[in-house]
Design a protein around this nucleic acid. Sequence first.
DNA 1: GCCAACGTTGGC
DNA 2: GCCAACGTTGGC
Length: 161
Amino acid sequence: MAEKRNYWLVKSEPDVFSIDDLFAAPGKSTCWDGVRNYTARNMLRDELKNGDGVLYYHSRTDPPGIAGTAEVVREGYPDHTQFDPKNSHFDAKADPENPRWFMVDIRALEKFPRHVPLEEIKASSKLAEMAVVQRGQRLSVQRVTAAEWREVLRMGKSEKR
DNA sequence: GCCAACGTTGGC
DNA sequence: GCCAACGTTGGC
């Protein structure tokens, strides 16, 4: 029986951790730490499952857009940076007995020949409903439908659009 | 439990 | 670097 595969979009500032950094990481994978938003936390803890597809979005860069794909390789577990006073994501209220923040591990799958810029996502009728193009949407983890996933991959892999 | 102040995000 | 949008905090 095939588990249903879900799809997500995660944001990262490429100056902090780009898709190239992900490919360069050991095993092309990393723990997705530092998320400090409860809605995103709930998705990381409860909903992202092994094998789920992840669109890797570069924010705060010019142009912002989707750089490639990754997959979930470890499901929600406590984000260790919440307990590290030297870490910028340290949370003094986090209790090791009852962790507040969670993360998953992701592994790089594919870097697009051309990033899919935010502008083209906005211009696409098939992608107009994506959370990332909604006004004021700041969640660093967002749901993506299977149809949106397919369309972003199609756009990312075609040299001409 | 309201809501103003504050901090962060992220396109531009 | 600006600033609108939004989530969180904390005084009351």
